[in-house]
């Protein structure tokens, strides 16, 4: 029996993932964020060397899941600073008092263009527009011109070619729906009825839409028109150096991602410094390649592939965060009735 117990204990130690747990240093800031967060470790390392602050990243879910977790844990937050609450969820986070006031000196360098309210609790870090993407070659082979805007998508010429994400389960899906609301106002339901008559395919997430149904990605699916991001074409550069896909810049909805210091944070002072880090030119330069989004700071150069394949849309549709918060669920219900009823 004793031998068995020893063997068991040895096994426990050998495989233990608990024993390798790193000890937090004196000045550690926990950054809570969503699954899509990605960063260049070198930038964070330099920050640690300069300030003595170590940044620990915790990811959980998409932007919606992140916001809701922050709301649930606001009395005892999971970290000190949060990044990734976006336009669609900003109002909920602010109404619930998730964030404390912190005005970064860098907020005037461009982020101020995307400010939600004047309370100084959320600072814009990046901009990621959701736009319709097209597979140029596939359209050409069908003898079709590249569509230019929303109206073309309802044109029978483009019947059965569009795939979109369900706004109830997908963040780009919701953004696209909001774009049509912003453009058509009261007529948006009618527009979706036309899309439905024109054979729009609805799938639950971006993965199926882009990697499986869309013909311009590695999955080489059947449909040449998809709802994705303004930046997606930069990942689809062909061997000749030309992008195989293109974003339709008149179908874009602007999604801004924000950072803020959490209320009740253990280390609010250092947390503010991490917000500064996210707004620094060094970090901002990396966001296109790392997260497929555009820097919120002005004067940050985009990578070469982006300049060619993925320019930032100039006149995207927008909606005030408060209006989205007030109507989100009703719009999704109306959309369900119109498109799937």
């Amino acid at each position: 029996m004793r031998r068995m117990a020893i063997a068991l204990f040895a096994l426990l130690l050998a495989g233990c993932s608990l024993s390798g747990d790193d000890k937090p240093g004196d000045r550690t800031v926990v950054l809570v964020t969503h699954d899509s967060f990605a960063h260049d470790p070198a930038v964070f390392d330099r920050f640690t060397a300069e300030t003595g602050i170590r940044v620990e990243v915790r990811k959980s879910g998409d932007a919606g899941a992140l916001t809701n977790q922050l709301v649930l844990t606001k009395a005892s937050p999971l970290g000190d600073v949060a990044f990734g609450v976006d336009t669609t969820f900003a109002s909920r986070a602010l109404d619930e008092g998730v964030f404390a006031e912190y005005r970064s000196p860098a907020a005037a360098e461009g982020p101020q263009r995307y400010v939600v309210d004047d309370s100084g609790r959320l600072t814009a870090v990046d901009v990621g527009d959701v736009c319709v993407n097209v597979d140029v070659a596939a359209l050409e082979s069908r003898g079709l011109p590249v569509p230019t805007g929303y109206a073309d998508l309802a044109d029978p010429k483009y019947k059965d070619l569009l795939v979109v994400e369900d706004p109830a389960t997908s963040s780009p899906g919701l953004a696209f729906l909001l774009g049509t609301v912003a453009s058509f106002r009261d007529g948006w339901v009618g527009y979706w009825e036309k899309l439905r008559a024109n054979g729009v395919l609805v799938v639950s997430g971006w993965e199926e839409a882009y990697t499986q149904e869309f013909s311009g990605s590695s999955g080489q699916g059947p449909r040449p028109i998809v709802v994705s991001y303004a930046s997606s074409p930069s990942a689809e550069i062909g061997e000749d150096g030309e992008p195989r896909t293109r974003a339709l810049l008149d179908t874009c909805f602007r999604q801004v991602e924000y950072a803020g210091v959490l209320a009740n944070a253990k280390n609010p002072e250092d947390a503010g410094k991490v917000v500064d880090l996210l707004l620094s030119p060094e970090f901002q330069r990396t966001v296109p390649e790392m997260m497929y989004v555009y820097p919120a700071r002005e004067g940050v150069e985009l990578p070469e592939a982006w300049a060619k394949a993925a320019p930032l849309p100039e006149n995207p549709a927008t909606l005030p965060a408060a209006e989205i918060q007030a109507n989100r669920e009703r719009w999704i219900e109306q959309w369900r009735a119109a498109v799937q009823g």
């Binding site: 699954d35 899509s36 997430g205 971006w206 993965e207 882009y210 990697t211 990605s217 590695s218 999955g219 994705s228 991001y229 997606s232 990942a235 689809e236 497929y292």
Partner: peptide, 11 residues
């Protein structure tokens, strides 16, 4: 995580 990001290499 990989299938939820664009790019042929990720897939």
């Amino acid at each position: 995580r990989l299938v939820s990001r664009p790019g042929e290499l990720n897939s």
